[in-house]
Simulated scan of single mutants.
Amino acid sequence: MSKYWLLGVLLAGCLVGCTTTEPKPTTAEAVVVEPELSAQEKRNRHIQQLLFAAERALARDRLLKPGYDNAYDRYASVLIMDPDNAEAVLGLQAIVLRYLDMARNAAQRSYFDDAQMYLNRASQIMPDDTAVQTLVAQQRESLAKPEPRPEAENAYILDRALLNSRSDEVKQQLAELAQSARANNHMVLIVAATDAQGRWLYQTMRKAVPGYLLRGDIQVGSPARIELLPPL
């Protein structure tokens, strides 16, 4: 037997022993296939997404603006797909009420142009709704004819000329009223022609009673006066 023959046998055995095969997978991977949604299911899902986004915009006072993220557009989109959607109708009504509230607040601060702007926006939300348009018209009329606030029993009228000049006499009167409020634990209601005038009145009174928390409120109205109210 030739030594070359023996060497060939050994090499062949080595090659056979060194050959490897990839392991076969023991388990097959499962493929999950979600069922295809029907057109109605897709529509309902889209409506819910719009309602959620509309509520979020409403909570942030994004009522008509900005154009890419406001409550009105989303509620209106829902009503195009589902004209009887109660949530969308309630959402539009909520926008109207919010604008009416903003108009009242603006009018109380004598920002009448802003108040009219808010009322105009409120009327645009549901133009065919008689109840909504009636509410807007009533509030618009109340802005045109503001009702004077009734004076309290302890009301101290401020002289207009002295107040406008911020004279020492009116400062002395305010100091005495502030000290009386502190002595009797009264709350103070300041009625002034403008917000700026009301803030000046309050600051002047507060300086007269250092270290004391002068509790009260400021309202725009006429005549300018200080009302001392008993604590609640």
Rank of each mutant, 00 (worst) to 15 (best):
V136M: 02
T19D: 04
E151Y: 01
D73Y: 06
L135K: 12
I95W: 11
K171Y: 02
S2M: 07
Y202K: 12
L79D: 10
V96H: 11
T194Y: 09
P23A: 13
A183W: 02
P35I: 05
D129T: 02
Q40K: 12
N120L: 02
A71I: 11
R182Y: 05
L229I: 14
A59L: 10
V78P: 08
K145Q: 13
D113E: 14
R56W: 03
S38E: 07
A115V: 07
L7G: 03
A208N: 06
D101G: 10
R121C: 00
A39C: 00
Y68P: 00
M117R: 12
D195T: 13
Q139V: 03
R43L: 14
S2N: 15
P231R: 04
Q124A: 02
L201E: 09
A12V: 15
L6E: 12
L214P: 09
E169Y: 03
I226F: 06
E29S: 14
S77A: 15
T26E: 15
L100I: 09
Y118P: 03
Q172E: 14
Q48H: 07
R149D: 09
L50N: 03
N184G: 04
R160N: 10
A28D: 10
T19A: 14
A137M: 07
S38G: 15
Y202I: 00
A196C: 00
M81G: 02
P210A: 06
C14H: 05
L163I: 01
N164K: 10
G216R: 09
Y72A: 14
V31G: 01
P223L: 06
R56C: 00
V209K: 08
A106K: 03
A155H: 08
E153Y: 03
P150L: 08
S142Q: 15
M1Q: 13
Q138P: 01
V32P: 00
T19P: 00
L15S: 13
A131T: 07
L214E: 10
I190C: 03
V170W: 09
E227I: 01
A54Y: 08
A196G: 02
Q108T: 04
P146H: 02
M187H: 13
Q49P: 00
H186Y: 15
D129L: 00
Q197M: 15
Q48V: 05
D128R: 08
P148D: 06
I190P: 01
D217C: 00
A131P: 00
L214S: 08
E141D: 13
R62Y: 14
K171H: 10
D69E: 12
R104G: 04
E153S: 08
K3V: 09
L10Q: 03
Y75M: 11
L11M: 09
P35Y: 07
D195H: 03
N154W: 08
A224Q: 09
L201I: 15
Q203E: 15
I47D: 09
D129M: 01
L11H: 02
